[in-house]
Write a protein that binds this DNA or RNA. Structure first.
Lengths: 122, 122
DNA sequence: ATTTTATCTTGACAAGTGTAGAGGTAACAA
DNA sequence: TTGTTACCTCTACACTTGTCAAGATAAAAT
């Protein structure tokens, strides 16, 4: 379940919609950078080939797509990969970097503390 | 400062040595998977072109390489990338995934608590 | 009924990535 | 001093990734 940078951008949008069309995805991507419809559609086609999205329903010429995998299913193996490749498998290094990244918000900290608390109970 | 998967494997080794030769790197990589010397040397050459390593000294036919960038210089932008692409910029999601990954060790937890403590002092 | 528009399909290409063989040559061994 | 070995250099190639244009065609508008 390895996706490219561009593919992830598209998935990101698809995950927050119940369904979406290529023109919609194109509109979303275009908010950030300037790519043609063709380019976006190619990425969508590849996601379909990879079986991580499917044609949910068709209305006239328009295809509505839907995801076939959850964020977690993609995040888990890819984060593991990052941990290995970038931090030699050392979680502490990753955490540290996350702290230094650009300051965690107060809310982030609190969330972390809760994660720790919950973890200790198990 | 974007490095490929294979390039990161090589950097990983180089970072833990003061200097290293191509055959040494090859030996290291070969512990995990089966690639020829040529392949490894190509990656090393590309790292050199990217100016993230340099020829430190030469002894006979043998070249000793050394890194020109720190782990952090590479990790920081790449982790940021991952955070954006994979977790839509949401640090909480990343942390959560890290916890679920494959259980943090007791030591990891403690380390995290210290990070939090230190963070609160600032 | 005909034109216009929106969307899809197909094909293509440059750059990047992983992979390796062939051939050169310095260094070492006999 | 000549053969062998260890490394290096160069070249190449298939696959992936990002990018898009051209052409087809259904749907909508006139």
């Amino acid at each position: 379940m390895k996706l490219t940078s561009f593919e992830l951008d598209v998935m990101q949008y698809l995950w927050q919609q119940t369904e979406a069309t290529s023109p919609e995805v194109h509109a979303y991507i275009t908010k950030t950078r300037d790519v043609t419809y063709s380019t976006v559609k190619t990425i969508i086609d590849r996601l379909e080939q990879k079986k991580v999205i499917k044609r949910h329903r068709v209305e006239g010429r328009t295809i509505y797509y839907q995801t076939l995998v959850t964020p977690k299913e993609v995040q888990k193996p890819m984060l593991k990969q990052v941990l290995q490749k970038l931090f030699a498998g050392n979680k502490k290094l990753l955490m540290n970097q996350l702290f230094e990244q650009d300051d965690l918000s107060q809310e982030d900290i609190q969330y972390l503390e809760n994660l720790i608390k919950r973890d200790k109970k198990l």
